[in-house]
Simulated scan of single mutants.
Amino acid sequence: MNDPARVKLVRPIKVEERMITEVVIRRPKVRDLRAMEKMREPGGTELDQGIAMAAALCDLPLEAMDEMDAADFAAVSEVLGGFLPKAPA
């Protein structure tokens, strides 16, 4: 997959005073994976980690991710999944 990837949002979101119609997703680095693992709070879920990772890689605040349409988040998540190596069968 090329670096970075772009996802056009079906439902744009407002971040501060601007409308976001497309997100640019950079490829994760090992430091991003470490940060994601460290930020997992007691009682936190894998979904919470995925949202935090998506926010970081899209350079969006967590609050913006909370406002993202679920279908748009699924599209972003699919791109993120494509960035990560697959586990051996």
Rank of each mutant, 00 (worst) to 15 (best):
D72F: 03
P42S: 11
P88T: 02
M68I: 06
E17W: 04
I20W: 03
F73M: 14
K8H: 04
V24R: 13
V15F: 03
I20Q: 03
I13C: 07
P88C: 01
L47A: 10
P28R: 07
V23W: 01
L60E: 09
L9K: 03
V10L: 13
M65T: 12
A52M: 12
E37G: 09
M53G: 04
E46C: 00
Q49K: 07
A64Y: 08
E78K: 15
A75M: 14
E41I: 08
R40W: 04
R26Y: 06
L60S: 07
R34W: 03
M36K: 10
D32Y: 02
G81F: 09
V10A: 14
I25V: 14
A52C: 04
K14H: 05
K29H: 03
E37R: 14
A56H: 14
C58L: 08
A64R: 07
K38S: 11
A71G: 12
R40F: 03
T21V: 05
F83P: 06
V23K: 03
G44V: 02
A70F: 10
E22W: 05
V7P: 06
G43S: 02
L57S: 11
E22T: 10
V10F: 00
E41L: 11
E37T: 09
G44A: 14
G43C: 00
M65K: 04
A5V: 08
A64Q: 07
A64F: 08
G50L: 14
N2H: 13
A75T: 12
R31D: 04
E16T: 06
L62D: 13
R6W: 12
D48G: 00
D59L: 15
L9G: 01
M1I: 07
P28C: 09
G81V: 03
Q49T: 07
D32F: 01
I25H: 12
A89E: 12
R31A: 06
P61W: 10
M19C: 00
R18W: 00
M68E: 06
A70G: 00
E63F: 08
K8Y: 02
E41G: 11
I13Q: 04
E63M: 13
Q49Y: 00
A54C: 10
D59Q: 15
E17H: 06
M39I: 02
D3E: 15
M36D: 11
M19H: 04
K8T: 04
R11H: 13
M36R: 15
P4W: 08
A75F: 07
D69P: 00
A54S: 15
D59I: 10
E41M: 09
E63L: 15
V10N: 05
K8N: 01
V15P: 00
P88M: 06
A89Y: 09
R26F: 08
R18Q: 08
P4R: 06
D48C: 01
A52H: 08
A52Q: 12
V7I: 13
M65S: 08
R40D: 02
L33W: 04
V24Q: 13
R18A: 09
K29P: 01
N2K: 08
G44W: 01
M53K: 05
D72V: 04
L80E: 13
L57T: 10
A5Q: 12
P88H: 06
A74F: 09
R18K: 10
A89K: 14
D48V: 00
M19Q: 07
K29D: 09
R27H: 12
K8S: 02
E37S: 12
L33C: 01
V24F: 04
L57A: 15
T45A: 09
A56N: 15
C58F: 10
R31Q: 04
